[in-house]
Design a protein around this nucleic acid. Sequence first.
DNA 1: CAGTGGTCTAGACCACGCT
DNA 2: GCGTGGTCTAGACCACTGT
Lengths: 264, 264
Amino acid sequence: MKGRHVLQLDGIDKTDDRPPYRQIAAVLRAAIESHQFAAGERLPSEADLIEHFGVARMTVRQAVQELRGEGLVVSEHGRGVFVQARPPIRRLASDRFARRHRDEGKAAFSVEAEKSGYSPRVDSITVRRQKPGSLVAERLRVPVSDDVVVRSRRYLADGQPIETAVSYIPVAFAAGTAIEQTDTGPGGIYARLEESGHVLARFTEEVGARMPTPDERRVLNIGLGVPVLTVLRTAYDVNDVAVEVCDTVKVAPSYLLEYEFSAR
Amino acid sequence: MKGRHVLQLDGIDKTDDRPPYRQIAAVLRAAIESHQFAAGERLPSEADLIEHFGVARMTVRQAVQELRGEGLVVSEHGRGVFVQARPPIRRLASDRFARRHRDEGKAAFSVEAEKSGYSPRVDSITVRRQKPGSLVAERLRVPVSDDVVVRSRRYLADGQPIETAVSYIPVAFAAGTAIEQTDTGPGGIYARLEESGHVLARFTEEVGARMPTPDERRVLNIGLGVPVLTVLRTAYDVNDVAVEVCDTVKVAPSYLLEYEFSAR
DNA sequence: CAGTGGTCTAGACCACGCT
DNA sequence: GCGTGGTCTAGACCACTGT
């Protein structure tokens, strides 16, 4: 690398009562927020920062770690530290599973993408049968000893992962439908369920938030200090039979969930 | 300190491909999750861990930092590292503002408390008039230049703070009612609004999650790695007039929000 | 191969809380 | 004063990514 790009950053102020690593973090944070480093761009290397600020390596590493903790940057071993691109916020209205969308052959995710103007993608799709956990079994009202169909996938917006989802469907409702194929066809799982006679009536969602596991951090490509929203949705048909449970983990800064309910 | 308590922890396995600091973190995590260290209890000091695992100080510090990032422990300068106490989970059903509860003279919070069996408390109640932010003004459909009544308070369960809430009510709907008193009387704000002719019809809630500000961490008494749920609720009367906006910040591990909606 | 971040050592001094 | 965690130094070797 030709270090042609002279660092245009303030130095450390000894009269400042904040410790050096916090000052360095503040300088870098300001540079990022003022777009001196654009989203996706590489920050100066540790060696550069050591020279620029005149401190030991652990000190600049601690500064960078602050920023990772805030989800501002992501580091990649052997490549560098990169400014985190902020995926757009998705507003999820509670009509996102309305039948009119399915009738148009659209899955809920592409409906949202179209409305918000980002390019959607789904990958890491796997389909298998396995025994459900007690949480899922309880909601599906099936014994934990029965296999269910498990569909797992990851959603991306503009190339950034923003959500993982795992659906559980009793085998009796999925057998012989495209639900057990990788591609479920137009309108997705819910359209297939309705075709096979399980007309949907209502959904419940249980919403929480927590810190991601190291595994989730990897799959969702998020920094240390970025929480996730968890949504456990159960779909019921017109006979009040639970036909699907969907367990989703969403990158919190990318989501706003909207619900409406009556005061009755 | 008499180190009478011999550390009953596994050591580092050189054949394990995880780095030592992760192994140490895993050992401590397992000990916490198996209640070998109870909630609120102090972890062994860094000196103890250095001796027990036979590593350098930075290595045990990195392990402890993993746990802080997960919100499992909180460190206190000069005192030690403590296992984070987990307050009870409150399940908030979307019927929590149903009229029948108000008619019985109960506020939503005490209804929940009664159902879940913890002792509720509300403190830090303040009432004032001020100009709303644009977010609130937009939802109340009032100009940002008009004062609104602002009610702020903190909720505690079994003595632990779990939520802060700030309500905004247009002056026209609050003037001359107990809404501008510290004690709003039986049934709370919503009961007073209905008495003055604004019968409630529906609510919308916008749910998100993020890391707390340092200020919120202090008020809610939570550690560095604990996220918050944000819920912005708007109440509408039968004429579809927005009569209140309530901005709440909830300690995420203490909440599960439940919603139901139609598939129509 | 060179350049990057990841992990680790063995020290040092400081700031805080308690007794 | 003593034990605690917070910050820092100046090195070392390793693992990953690129050419």
